[in-house]
């Protein structure tokens, strides 16, 4: 499995609203498809995404099977200080994909 792709500016000024983009490799099996034998392929998706900055929640999503494979998210964050963004994607099977990005705020 490929690592998540995350775009966070390396530097910003205090009070800036920055752009964050995140892309993770996942088939997002919708539970609507059938295999060659006609059996329903069970749902297996990323159902939750969370982003925190220095431990405080910034943005999150509750995700349904209608989100495309390799889910892409773009959102904003207001930064007041240097620190670390933490990103978490939760799979239906309970596993969590985690990643971090730091930003220098002056």
């Amino acid at each position: 499995m490929a690592k998540p792709r995350i775009k966070v500016p390396k530097k910003a000024s205090a009070g800036d609203v920055i752009k964050i983009k995140a892309l993770v490799s996942h088939t997002m099996e919708s539970g609507q498809r059938k295999d060659k034998e006609g059996n329903v392929i069970p749902q297996k998706i990323i159902n939750k995404f969370e982003c925190t900055f220095n431990g405080t929640s910034v943005f999150g999503c509750d995700i349904d099977p209608a989100v495309s494979a390799n889910p892409f998210l773009e959102f904003r964050a207001k930064v007041a200080e240097s620190g670390t963004f933490k990103f978490m994607w939760t799979d239906d099977d309970g596993s969590v994909i985690e990643a971090e990005k730091s930003i220098e705020v002056s």
Binding site: V17, I18, F53, T56, S57, V58, F59, C61, V67, S68, P71, F72, L73, E74, F75, R76, A77, K78
Partner: peptide
């Protein structure tokens, strides 16, 4: 902390 209510997918 979102700063702006914007999101895309």
């Amino acid at each position: 902390l979102s700063g702006e209510a914007f999101a895309a997918t």
